[in-house]
Nucleic acid binder design. Structure first.
Length: 112
DNA sequence: CGACTTATCCGTCAGGCCTA
DNA sequence: TAGGCCTGACGGATAAGTCG
């Protein structure tokens, strides 16, 4: 398990503005498909435009939803790797301390 | 057993970074 | 510089744990 090099965390300079938005109960893929499946044959240009905006928004949200899932998956993996590395280093440290103790012992007995 | 707290997951927004 | 991607921050939902 190695920590991939392209995964970096950086602080963002967000001004703590609470993120509020309308939550549509039927947002997501199904909604996008419904939107795409209804051709704007008998619609005014303005309602077509509104529908296009809605469709674009749905696509954007869907992509971001998936991106967030992937981002969280990568973060979990990254944390797991760090934890593994901590365990390995702790073991190494313990071994080195033991080794040092043994060498000190040998040295002390020689000195006598 | 209901009220409250804590942990975890998820969707969304905002903003930074990168590329065409 | 517009558009897309990535990710921190936020708030809601839900499960699990705790307490009176």
């Amino acid at each position: 398990c190695t920590i991939s090099g392209d995964f970096t965390f950086f602080p963002t300079a967000t001004g703590d503005i609470p993120a509020y938005q309308l939550r549509s109960p039927n947002s997501g893929l199904a909604q996008s498909i419904v939107m795409a499946a209804s051709p704007g044959s008998m619609q005014s240009p303005s309602s077509q435009h509104a529908e296009e905006i809605t469709r674009k928004r749905e696509v954007r949200l869907m992509k971001n939803r998936e991106a967030a899932r992937e981002c969280r998956r990568k973060k979990k993996e990254y944390v797991k790797c760090l934890e593994n590395r901590v365990a390995v280093l702790e073991n190494q440290n313990k071994t080195l301390i033991e080794e040092l103790k043994a060498l000190k012992d040998i040295y002390c007995h020689k000195a006598e």
